[in-house]
Design a protein around this nucleic acid. Structure first.
Lengths: 230, 230
DNA sequence: CGACGAGTTGACGAAACTCAAGAGTCGTGG
DNA sequence: CCACGACTCTTGAGTTTCGTCAACTCGTCG
């Protein structure tokens, strides 16, 4: 289960918002030799409401964060990929995990001990700034998500998501969905059924789907629709 | 426009998550003598996407944070009261404000310079921890909000909100809405019309409304409904 | 082959928004 | 003191959106 980091792993850690501005020595001193956690698809990495003893950086794979509501239904909060970190704010403040984390596909993550981090932070103000930057980024992501949930229809949110995948491209674009459709649906706050229908409706705006491949006839046209809704 | 802090003001600042664990001397050194901003109802304190030069602590009144979407519609993110801080993460990381802030009623806030804070943070690791704690708390609030938007119906969200106001009380409870109904509606992600109707529907569950006074016949019954939805 | 899970599709109903009109409240100015 | 306008809140009617339940297809894997 526990391994040590490869050369490639260190490169990915170095690209993270947390360690990007830290020198390699400082980074290595925070990460133990047996810090790598290999998790299979469906494995739980940490559970909502349990004490936050560690935080994590993703080396490979995909991790979804979700919350379980009082009535048992679950809300997917976000889905993260390589070199992204999660649970740092919880671990640092000694709180409980505010979401559960589960591997969407087989993944590898680095587990970093919170107590060690807390000791280091007193000595290194740069580390504090890095953590604050990361927390600030997460705040921004969540704010955007709330804005979209409150102001956009499900159709618009889906179009927006596809456009996010398309990136800054123009004209025709072909992309593949990064993970299962039911997950995308949950991420966007709708049911798989609605997702399927909505995707069908977008055909009218030049979006074609086959399997997990999505083709956009004209990115700008879709973007225009998305902002105007209509 | 600019005043200095009264004795009471310092007390309120001391109760904030940011300065609660800091000694008074450290707090005073961060806050200038003319730091108090008196804002009238409707005044804007800062604007989304502008560079974050300061952050704020509320002394009195109510401040709403909101985002303007691409299509012009606005999403209320949160509403804060005395001794709560906002924009600290943005100010500290030198980013732009991720929401706009506007006074809901006549209010007084302390403006704190971000550059000063950034200098201090290197010297005082406690300050860094206080800021991280505050950011972590905000993250938690937003997560909860996303969970509720994704899993609860508007009716359940409204019931939940009323229960929040009722606090840990049991049995019969009479409370008054903290601010205009249209604001509450926006906060819960619905239109004023839906809010009005939904409030009417809750009569079936022992909720009576007159003006801004809300009476709950049996808090536990409402709580049960809220968790089961039904 | 058969079981399973993901995805799609259909039918139906409930939830929520829009547009529109009306009631009540408050402050201002004549 | 009253009339007016501005604003909030409510109510009504009609429509759209979205979730639910169910059946069915399809690909995968044993």
């Amino acid at each position: 289960m526990a391994e040590s980091l490869t050369q490639d792993d260190w490169r990915i850690v170095g690209q993270s918002a947390l360690f990007g501005r830290l020198d390699a020595v400082a980074a290595r001193s925070l990460i133990g030799d047996d810090a790598v956690l290999a998790v299979a698809r469906g494995d739980t990495i940490c559970r909502q409401d349990e004490p936050a003893a560690s935080y994590f950086i993703i080396l490979s794979g995909l991790i979804k964060l979700f919350r379980r509501a009082a009535d048992g239904s679950i809300a997917i909060i976000s889905i993260h990929g390589p070199s992204q970190s999660f649970m740092e704010a919880e671990a640092l403040t000694g709180a409980t995990y505010s979401t559960s984390a589960e591997a969407v596909v087989d993944s590898r993550v680095v587990r970093i001990d919170a107590a060690t981090l807390r000791r280091r932070i007193s000595a290194d103000p740069k580390l504090a700034m890095a953590l604050l930057g990361s927390a600030s980024m997460h705040l921004r992501m969540l704010l955007e998500q709330i804005e979209k949930l409150k102001t956009m229809t499900a159709t618009a949110r889906l179009a927006d998501f596809i456009l996010l995948l398309a990136g800054p491209r123009e004209g025709r674009a072909e992309i593949s969905l990064p993970y299962e459709k039911r997950l995308v649906a949950g991420h966007l706050g709708m049911t798989p059924e609605s997702f399927s229908r909505t995707l069908g409706q977008l055909r009218r705006h030049g979006v074609h789907v086959e399997r997990d491949k999505v083709t956009i006839d004209d990115v700008d046209r879709l973007r225009a629709y998305c902002e105007a809704d209509e």
